[in-house]
Design a protein around this nucleic acid. Sequence first.
DNA 1: ACCTGAACACCGTTCAAGT
DNA 2: ACCTGAACACCGTTCAAGT
Lengths: 216, 216
Amino acid sequence: MPVDRVIDAAVELVDEVGPAEFSMRLLAKRLRSSTATLYRHFAGKDEILVHVVDHVLGEVPRHLPDMADTSTWQERLVASAEALFRTLKEHPKVVSLFDNHVPLGPRGLAGREAAIGILLSSGFPPEVAASAYTAVAHYVIGFASQLRADGTTGPEENQDIREFYRSLDPARYPATVTSAPFLPNSLDDEFRFGLQLIVDGLAKQLTGPAGRTHHR
Amino acid sequence: MPVDRVIDAAVELVDEVGPAEFSMRLLAKRLRSSTATLYRHFAGKDEILVHVVDHVLGEVPRHLPDMADTSTWQERLVASAEALFRTLKEHPKVVSLFDNHVPLGPRGLAGREAAIGILLSSGFPPEVAASAYTAVAHYVIGFASQLRADGTTGPEENQDIREFYRSLDPARYPATVTSAPFLPNSLDDEFRFGLQLIVDGLAKQLTGPAGRTHHR
DNA sequence: ACCTGAACACCGTTCAAGT
DNA sequence: ACCTGAACACCGTTCAAGT
């Protein structure tokens, strides 16, 4: 019972049925084995799910374009964040497993290293680079956690929400009703917009932090 | 069996044992009732948890300072985001319940209305206001989801992670090791830093979107 | 050594039966 | 009308017993 075979099957199973329905029994059945055998290789369900997270993070590089040395740090940081976002979109049911623990497996560390490396080599001081990475990472996770776990990422989903907001009482929710028709069609557009806000904010840190110090 | 009494007890129970250990049986026992009685008032566990989320969102206004009319939109937006973050810090085990659904209960709508209202009245066009709110909301949720569910929000937690990063192989993770000593002591500081990046990015949208259009 | 069926103490949900 | 004990079909985890 090779460890990798278990992890591969576990990722498949979470992708199919979600973390709530994922069970040691289902995993054992898929492997044509028994639950007790799984416990010979892993401490328990939680440990297997940590491996699932790290396995998924291993797919991030596949979504990275190869960037010429001429790319700006903005382009490279955005590409990193989008690669993670695209990866999570392919495994929407895995996203909730990112809750409550910083991914410290080898794949999670590689992503952190790459992003902070981009910032350091672009002239950001280390304290800014570290906090900027955290901000971007949490933004991506927060956004990805709103991916419909049932796979309906399509535009009809956003249209339903827009219709709901439009149908509210304008006297009670004036701003919500006013802005509802302008909601973007796709989650991707909303994702890129917010990501650009963060990058723009970072650019300001680099060019003119005059009068603005890091961390109060 | 008043509905409110069930929700209050459910919030208490999730705060104490977390969503994973939360069960209809435990909730029934706490109410000195039976599970079948709960099903007479709620469709099931998921519906109760939706009410738990909305109940917690109802506490956000308690964390809002009263802001004079002279406050800038930056101050008011930051205060809104911090109020949500502080609320979630008081209910760290509830945060994962925010996954996979936009909070559409009355309390969730009130928060959206307030934030978008701030932006509209400050001159942002509706399409920017809507996307900006989404960006801020997802940033806060993403950050809150990293709150230690076991209640150890203290600085020792961040120190442990910093020590871990420092102890890595500098040849393999040079940027991570370089930046590790500069990790902020508190999650609050990191939260505020990233939030300020978003606000700075938004300010640029307002003053000079020259050459930069919203959503391509 | 490695694997397994069966067991234990739990779940969410339902329903016949009580008052 | 409103409530409940017991049942059903599941869990995660463990362990005596098999090969």
